[in-house]
């Protein structure tokens, strides 16, 4: 094998490795966390916080209802 062939082989190998690397490197995702079911912990906590905030908002709404009933005069 002459040196030109050797070089072109090496170049081809280098390029194909680079191309293959670019194609196969999967973006890293939290797959392990999902398969272990830990993601449900996140969902549960966020749901609890959300429900807590919403219950609070409804409570303020009720207080406003009561306040508006006590008001004198016109309603705007």
């Amino acid at each position: 094998m002459n040196s030109r062939k050797k070089w072109s082989c090496a170049l081809l190998a280098a390029i194909s490795t680079g191309v293959a690397y670019g194609q196969t490197a999967e973006p890293e995702m939290a797959d392990a966390m999902r398969s272990e079911g830990k993601i449900y912990v996140v969902v549960a906590i966020l749901s609890v916080i959300l429900i807590g905030v919403v219950v609070y908002l409804f409570a303020i709404d009720r207080k406003l209802d009561a306040l508006e009933k006590k008001l004198p005069g016109k309603k705007g």
Partner: peptide, 23 residues
């Protein structure tokens, strides 16, 4: 409330595109 609960549930459990950088 329903829309937001749906958001935190589906938003974390359902599939998303696998992208570099943002992951």
């Amino acid at each position: 409330v329903a829309l937001l609960l749906y958001t935190v549930t589906a938003g974390f459990l359902w599939e998303v595109p696998r992208l570099h950088i943002v992951n």
